[in-house]
Design a protein around this nucleic acid. Structure first.
Length: 216
DNA sequence: GGCCAGGACACCA
DNA sequence: TGGTGTCATGGC
């Protein structure tokens, strides 16, 4: 299994090149982006983040002060703006109350403790928690998303109903726990999912065709 | 004009 | 545990 996962990785990297994720200037921006991109196109998230920057409130302290209704107005382009405003508020409130508003203090937690802490915050589920751990805290957890499940299922490496935990274990049980590897791998899976594997039922005519168990 | 994006939660059985 | 409804905009 390890060899197959490594072949997929190298095929994607050869085809697309390094993705330089996460597209953000700083760790806190990664977190806000991770919440805003839940079931939402990244182009819409960019508009919302730009609004926050132009309003000068893309910081834990500022977001703690602003009324939730005003925050919802600013992130309007990202969709689900009322729900996401509550989620952002929930995060910065926890950060303020438990860590004095310091991401460094929160990220000093051991990786499993950090994951539990993030999952206990309203609006942060498994994928958002793992995105924060990998791309903001820079610790080695494999981020699973909808593309990940579709791609490995189509390659014949899992069933199409595999759980988040099962998919995460598929990668973490067979690959070294390397933050840079997981960073690039997930980014490449998203890139590939956007470009190719979305509509094709099998992986015909894409850079992973040779690795598909359904071929030949 | 319908479909879908780098999900999470509440509620139900 | 697993299935369904809800939250909502913008691009194609």
């Amino acid at each position: 299994m390890r060899q197959e996962l490594e072949q997929i990785y190298h095929s994607l990297l050869d085809h697309y090149g390094p993705q330089h994720w996460w597209p953000a200037d700083e760790p806190f921006e990664v977190i806000i982006g991770a919440i805003l991109t839940q079931s939402t196109a990244w182009t819409n998230v960019e508009k919302a983040i730009l609004n926050l920057k132009e309003a000068g409130i893309l910081s834990p302290a500022s977001l703690n002060r602003i009324p939730v209704g005003e925050l919802a107005d600013l992130i309007h382009p990202s969709g689900y703006y009322n729900a996401k405003a509550r989620k952002i508020k929930a995060f910065v409130e926890r950060l303020g109350e438990s860590y004095g508003g310091s991401l460094e203090r929160m990220f000093a937690l051991h990786i499993t403790a950090l994951r539990r802490e993030l999952l206990s915050i309203y609006g942060i589920g498994q994928e958002t928690a793992d995105s924060i751990i990998l791309y903001a805290a820079r610790k080695p957890v494999f981020v699973v998303d909808a593309y990940t499940g579709r791609i490995v299922a189509r390659l014949g490496l899992s069933t199409n109903k595999a759980s988040y935990t099962a998919l995460q274990a598929l990668f973490m049980d067979h690959l070294p726990h390397d933050e840079k590897l997981y960073n690039e791998y997930h980014a490449l899976l998203v890139r590939h999912g956007k470009e190719t594997c979305k509509r094709s039922p099998l992986c015909h005519h894409c850079c992973l065709s040779d690795l598909c168990r359904f071929h030949g």
